[in-house]
Design a protein around this nucleic acid. Structure first.
Lengths: 187, 187
DNA sequence: TTGACTAAACCGACCAGCCGGTACACTACC
DNA sequence: GGTAGTGTACCGGCTGGTCGGTTTAGTCAA
């Protein structure tokens, strides 16, 4: 699909943004990090906007690929939710591309213009359907998804929200919730 | 405490960041929005960093004040969690100051330098204790908190994660969870 | 000979921070 | 009670460095 160089550029951009902050995501830094020249970068991405949109798209693709992979092996109720949860946890996956580093793309894109989140926004209708049809209480499914978002955001921002033990307990509880819970109150 | 002008500057900065994106948070725009000159702004905040830190601090203060207010009237288990949840929902509160608009401060600060989140990070140990001691399962308390984070992040980014009905259902379920749930499985 | 670059000079807009002011209230001394 | 001095709040033009983007001239492999 996309060339190897393009992929290297996207990953380099994510590394720069992660290491130095999204404000410091300069095209020259990206070029250097990717091991190419500034001209070479412009050859692939004509503007910074184009690069940011490509980063957001890559984030979406990696997330959905991961969910598809998980769902292939998991046929129980709540599989989509567990897939999403799993996608948000990827620290680094050479095969799929690094997700947690790409999630900084959302921040970088939103920082300069929220309209650049279009590739993400365009999938929300689908994601919401998937959550509503995941086989468990929709509200619970949405909560798991929101908590997963909370996890990666806090990670990106380096806010010490959870320690290692708490994170494990939270993850286990989220997985448990994703299988549905027959004993819940009915209100 | 802090002068009226300082407060006006903080709110103006939040409005600018919300309306035009955190990358467009320029000191001159803030000054104009606050109805003062650039020189006047520099009189109160010597650097942009100082302004950003003040914004983060204001965010933390508003959040904790809100939680304290809620807890004064709510003595049941999970009160702190409900307070946090409530704080994250404030769209605009002239008495307390606007929270949802200030939450953009987190994005703005993190965009230029994650170290500016110090006022927030410094409260995390306390917040984690509050969650662990809230009277309900710590993991569930953490999840509610993370979901609340997920809510405001998606709001700031204008990602259409939930429609109005879903949001209400999610909120109701989060509140229900915050009272603890005796019927949960034990793993 | 085309596609994928390198290398490096350059431009123009933009913006944080600087600085030399102004205005005004308040104190203090004679 | 006048005048000098002091501190606070604020004004707004200026500048120096930065950065997206352009341009040009050339390399190299398939």
């Amino acid at each position: 699909m996309t060339s190897d160089t393009k992929r290297r550029i996207l990953e380099a951009a994510a590394r720069v943004a992660t290491a130095k902050g999204v404000q410091a995501l300069k095209l020259e830094s990206v070029a250097i990090e990717a091991g190419i020249s500034k001209g070479g970068l412009f050859y692939h991405y004509k503007t910074k906007e184009e690069l940011l949109i490509a980063m957001v798209q890559a984030f979406v693709d990696v997330t959905e690929n991961r969910i598809a992979t998980i769902m292939a092996d998991d046929l129980e109720v709540g599989a989509w939710v567990r897939g999403f949860l799993d996608a948000c946890q990827i620290e680094e996956d050479p095969e799929v591309g690094s997700f947690s580093r790409l999630s900084v793309a959302i921040m970088a894109a939103a920082a300069s213009d929220k309209a650049l989140l279009k590739p993400l926004n365009d999938r929300q209708t689908h994601w919401r359907s998937a959550l509503n049809d995941s086989g468990i209480d929709p509200a619970v499914a949405q909560i798991i998804r929101l908590a997963a978002d909370g996890l990666w955001i806090n990670d990106i921002l380096d806010v010490p929200t959870l320690n290692e033990d708490e994170r494990k307990a939270v993850y286990a509880e989220l997985v448990r919730m994703s299988y549905g819970n027959q004993n819940r109150g009915e209100r």
